[in-house]
């Protein structure tokens, strides 16, 4: 299957026709954020404070990379389990977040919120952190540096390989994919 090439930041126009299962190659700027950073972003929103990054049309990559070895922009940098961010995600989609990259299932509330905001959920291959790090050209900590691996990093990526897990209509590859290959119905 041919990969669809897309530039970051994304637009609603660019993602509205993407379907669960489509292979996409992303190039441009995105931000890492995982558990601790999400907790702080939501705390900032609740306090009425400005967020350290503008989320409108931006993409968050759920990742906490390894430290960069000498001569490299970043260490191993695969996706972490997205479900732990579910409690926070609808608030960030309200702020204009357009896409998330991670791995694993999302709650129904997140799926509804994705549909409501015309957003999208991409998957990167869990466990392929060394391979994915080769597609990251630059990494800069832009917020919450004290969180170490959990700090928010601005990444410049090139041909970063993802698959559409949940599209803007709510179609879910984690439902359709396994259903097509199960040998017998769930008991």
């Amino acid at each position: 299957m041919n990969k669809i090439q897309l530039e970051l930041p994304l637009t609603h126009e660019a993602i509205k026709d993407l379907k669960a299962g489509d292979l996409v190659s992303l190039s441009g700027v995105l931000y890492t954020a995982r558990d601790a950073a999400h907790k702080r972003l939501i705390a900032a929103l609740e306090q009425g404070e400005p967020l350290p990054i503008e989320l409108h049309n931006q993409t968050i990559y759920y990742a906490g990379p390894c430290p960069a070895p000498p001569g490299r922009p970043i260490g191993s940098a695969g996706p972490t389990t997205s479900g732990r961010m579910d409690a926070y995600t609808p608030r960030l989609l309200e702020q204009g977040l357009i896409a998330m990259i991670g791995k694993g299932m999302r709650t129904e509330a997140v799926v509804q919120s994705i549909v409501q905001h015309g957003a999208i959920y991409f998957g990167a291959t869990g466990g392929a952190g060394a391979l994915l790090a080769q597609r990251i050209l630059q990494a800069t900590v832009v917020a919450y540096a004290d969180l170490g691996a959990e700090a928010i990093r601005k990444l410049v990526v090139e041909d970063f390989p993802v698959v559409v897990l949940i599209d803007s209509l709510g179609n879910n590859l984690y439902e359709s994919g396994p259903a097509a290959w199960a040998e017998k119905p769930r008991d």
């Binding site: 070895p69 191993s76 291959t125 952190g129």
Partner: peptide
């Protein structure tokens, strides 16, 4: 799709060993 993931993981393991990178960031 399953084949593509397995190919990536096999390549990832070889790359990690060759370049002295962690197999997974976790």
């Amino acid at each position: 799709a399953g084949r593509a993931v397995l190919e990536e993981l096999i390549e990832n393991a070889a790359l990690a060993r060759r370049e002295r990178l962690a197999i997974c960031q976790d």
